[in-house]
Simulated assay, not measured.
Amino acid sequence: MADIRIKKYAQTLINYSLKVEKGNLVVIQGYPVAYPLVEACYEEIIKAGGHPYVILKHDLNEILLKEGSEEQLTYVSSISEEIVKRADKLLNIGGGNNTKYMSNIDPKKISTFNKARANVSKLQSERSAKGELNWTLCMYPTQSSAQEAGMSLREYEEFIYSACFLNDEDPVASWIKIRESQQHIVDYLNSKKHLRIVSKETDIEMDIESRIWMNSDGRNNFPSGEVYSGPIEDSVNGKIRFSFPGIYSGQEIEDIRLTFKDGIVVEATASKGQKLLEALIDIDPGARRVGEVAIGTNYNINRFTKNMLFDEKIGGTIHLALGKSYPLSGGRNTSAIHWDMLCDMRDGGEIYADGELFYKDGKVLDKVVR
């Protein structure tokens, strides 16, 4: 018997996250293993009067990255560009058979491959900022992801459904409540000019005046539960030590420490994965700047799973992303990457806005959220 939560998952994605309407071209991308959710979403799109188009994802890029020439690595299919140009809605369902299939790829080749596709990513961001394209990224529970997270498949399914509030009688109503709660934080931060984040071996500050704090309420990322913005690009100064490994293309970089001066990473070290770290921040000039600063607010997510879709939302954490900004936040940084890294704030962490303490030990103070 199919899990009723798959149906609720699809209904929430199509009707709440993407808001599919009659006549919309909706492109679904997903691995074969995620077929139950692909099928359920397909059905919901039909019910909404949309036009679903399914693209099956695969792990064949491993062959390209290992065997391909420079010309092949940098070739970008016009078909992939047309999809982003023409779709009204994009649904990307994560969850494949092997989370480590890219682990032994030369970091320089990964860098070259991703840099070549920056224009497609830029086009998606621009259409999204104009309101021409809605996109959502979600996750289907698979054995490989469960193993990566250190859980059984049943445990991982429960983790995902809890993180998405799909165990609730009305998940959409739950997400509306989250939006309302987060809006208090957004309104507070949109009135501030300066931000300082302090935690273990971390003391970093940045200007946020004229930038827009966004309320991430399960539309683009599902699940969500964060507020985020893009800092003034040349204002970031100080140091930060990330509490959890940075994950990029299935490879882990451990104990990342960054030092910023006038917005630029001037020192970057890691106890494991130093070469990949250096390759990533050297992809382009924008890769050494912060494109996003965010506060995780989803307290149904309380453990690190090595999947940033969930990890960056952990209640009681903050994260910075090197690289591309989200235009809607007012951020202007451009890059081939957008790489999130996570700092735990639950044991002594503090955040100050214009010198005022508003966040301590992983929680926003009551004076802000009332």
Rank of each mutant, 00 (worst) to 15 (best):
N167S: 12
I83S: 07
N24A: 05
V369N: 11
G238W: 04
A118K: 14
L37G: 04
Q251L: 05
S325P: 02
V172R: 10
I6Q: 03
L322E: 00
A294W: 00
N15L: 08
K324C: 02
G316P: 05
D207N: 15
G50W: 04
P245Q: 09
Q124H: 10
D3T: 11
I105T: 06
N15K: 15
P231E: 07
D262E: 15
E157W: 10
D88W: 01
D106F: 04
M308G: 06
D354R: 09
C164S: 14
I160W: 03
D282V: 01
Y248A: 03
K8T: 08
G49A: 05
K306H: 15
Y101F: 15
N220Y: 01
S125Y: 12
Q124D: 05
L357F: 10
W175Q: 03
R86T: 12
N92R: 13
V293K: 01
E180T: 13
E39Y: 14
L37C: 09
S121Y: 08
L65P: 01
H194Y: 15
S224G: 08
S80H: 12
E155Q: 15
R117M: 13
E126V: 12
I63L: 13
N98Y: 10
R127A: 04
I337M: 09
H338N: 06
P171K: 07
T99F: 08
Y359D: 06
S243A: 11
I55H: 07
I212D: 03
R154Q: 14
D284H: 07
V290F: 07
I55A: 03
R117H: 08
K47W: 05
G331H: 05
G218P: 03
I283S: 01
R289S: 11
N24K: 03
G250S: 12
N114R: 05
S243C: 10
H194N: 14
I79T: 11
I301Q: 09
K272S: 15
S224T: 04
V33M: 08
G50E: 02
R346L: 09
G273R: 01
R346I: 09
R241T: 14
T334E: 13
Y75K: 13
Y161H: 14
C343A: 14
N220K: 11
